[in-house]
Design a protein around this nucleic acid. Sequence first.
DNA 1: AAAATATACGAAAACGTTTACGTAAAAACG
DNA 2: CGTTTTTACGTAAACGTTTTCGTATATTTT
Lengths: 357, 357
Amino acid sequence: MVYSSYENDYVNADDQKKGNAAMVSMKNIADRCHVSVATVSKALNNHSDVGEETRLRIKQIADEMGYHPNAAARALKTHRSYNIGILLRDDAHSGLTHEYFSEVLDGLKVEAEQKGYDITFINSHNNKMTYYEHCKYRNLDGAVIACAEFEDPEVIELVNRSLPTVTIDYIFNSCTSVSSDNVKGMRELVLYILNKGHKKIAFIHGESKSEVTKERLASFHRTLAEFNVEVPDEYVRASEYLNATKAEKLTKELMELKEPPTCIIYPDDLSYSGGINAVRNMGMLVPQDVSMAGYDGIKLSQIFNPKLTTVKQNSKEIGKLAAQQLISAIESPKTTFVQRIMVEGELLPGETIRDLN
Amino acid sequence: MVYSSYENDYVNADDQKKGNAAMVSMKNIADRCHVSVATVSKALNNHSDVGEETRLRIKQIADEMGYHPNAAARALKTHRSYNIGILLRDDAHSGLTHEYFSEVLDGLKVEAEQKGYDITFINSHNNKMTYYEHCKYRNLDGAVIACAEFEDPEVIELVNRSLPTVTIDYIFNSCTSVSSDNVKGMRELVLYILNKGHKKIAFIHGESKSEVTKERLASFHRTLAEFNVEVPDEYVRASEYLNATKAEKLTKELMELKEPPTCIIYPDDLSYSGGINAVRNMGMLVPQDVSMAGYDGIKLSQIFNPKLTTVKQNSKEIGKLAAQQLISAIESPKTTFVQRIMVEGELLPGETIRDLN
DNA sequence: AAAATATACGAAAACGTTTACGTAAAAACG
DNA sequence: CGTTTTTACGTAAACGTTTTCGTATATTTT
């Protein structure tokens, strides 16, 4: 069969571009089956009080007629929408356009759809509603807070209300969280670098207020302290996530120190790209003159030349687990409890760390 | 005021984590205002047959009580959901995890939200519904088809039904499209390369069946023909979008030809990264030994060293226009017609094209 | 002042479901 | 065979809106 968009031969005549496609309702099925709508409803929802043969007949006719329930009517009656919200605020440098969150969203989407849920973006509707009000307005069954200002009163309201919520990379006491294990990730990275003989390790990190940054910073310091490696204050610099320009500038500063580091860790792979530009512009090479490591494990990191040493975050898994947790909380609230889920990343050893041994 | 997630002091006592948050309805407002729900509805929707002072009173009380309409109830009655669907199939290598589509989605989201619409992902619900049925099921007001198999019968059904739709980077005769101007983009790129004195220009392109590929290929050939530049068959190679490995392999093949090209154009910036690896592994440099150009203008392309010559697609604008067109089609169907909208990209001259003059 | 019109509101049906409850007929029981 | 229980279905209310139509009061017109 050939489908031609010009002849419209795929679409049957009674539902052309103009005609209002009236969806088939339970009433229609009821009429054709000579039963009441109640029976149709119960048959389709597999209630016990409907005869076996009628149930089958109704289901078959419903199939034949191409019946699908009306989500609005169902939601109105049951207060369940099979729709979950995702909060992904995309000002500044993060959110949708960040490969990490894109993949989290993708993992979330796949898992949710597989379980029969749809995904709708949450926003504040031009500040006419809070996030929570928006969820109620849309009858959302739950919400995933993927990327947001977690100190925002609106966000705090959202997690504290009765709506099931799951946060990503941030912990509230009242709701389940799924986080990338930044402590372990950073520790493994530092161990790897130490193992290569480095003692002068700098860390250009992301926004200080971010929970992710705090974890990585703490893990960085703790791991180095464990091995009695000193880290001068000037080796730790605050930058911003995904700000290559700032990373470049800070890298230059680091390399101009009297005692420059032998290795620099970046907040993310994109910042690393700014960093390597800085040293190249100074006539130096990575890893010959200075070693470098990224974080995230974006696709390009493994195509870079030299191949980047980085920690790949398991972002799709994070999204998937968030969906599972949320749906579990929605469907069996009594047996689902607040959890702290950590998803380990994977150290990808590349060619940007020189072996000093 | 300090918000503490531990003390829950932001949430008032009658709506703690356990309590079912009963939203305030028109009935509640009606009671408090001593009017009927009909009057409340009409007041809030600015109908003419309600007194000025009562309208004001009702609106104020509604505000005080924190009223927001129930989207499901409204959709059920009006068949309008103020919700639009986006089809973004993410198998293989495209969709959400592609920076281009992420940005299109972001542009779409911002514009739609600003006009009071929400965005929900469309899928086929485990193949239990077609895309169109899914839209009806959710009472979506319209749909944007951003990334999909456009030959898929389900997609064809979707655009041919009565639901307003807008496609991105693909043209159906029955619905408005917003496309990146690949013809012009490729032409400008080729002109730039020609201007630098190149005569032996190769093109590693994306999936042949893709409309985007066809346009770029046609523009590539036409522009070169216009300047009487021959292009041997072996200079045009089919790869896949975002497949760096394949691009790397094809680049190696090109450079091993008896008469290798002096410039290679890639399907996207990521493929370029594979390409530059190939020539570096062969001991050659870009642009000294061979010139290269990408397509897309991802963030990293401007951080690459050497800076990549590429065509930046105006992806956010594409998303924004798609939203505008769709909403216009939804809100004033009589005065909105099928359009072909082209969004121009921008040539970003980098350092990867050697000047042969 | 009577009649016509305008204004402001309410009653009730409708949208498509779900579900509590009622009730026949059939089955099981004594 | 009468009584209870089970089975299979229907009735009707409800979810929260919107909208048509009706109507009482106020206003304007003759």
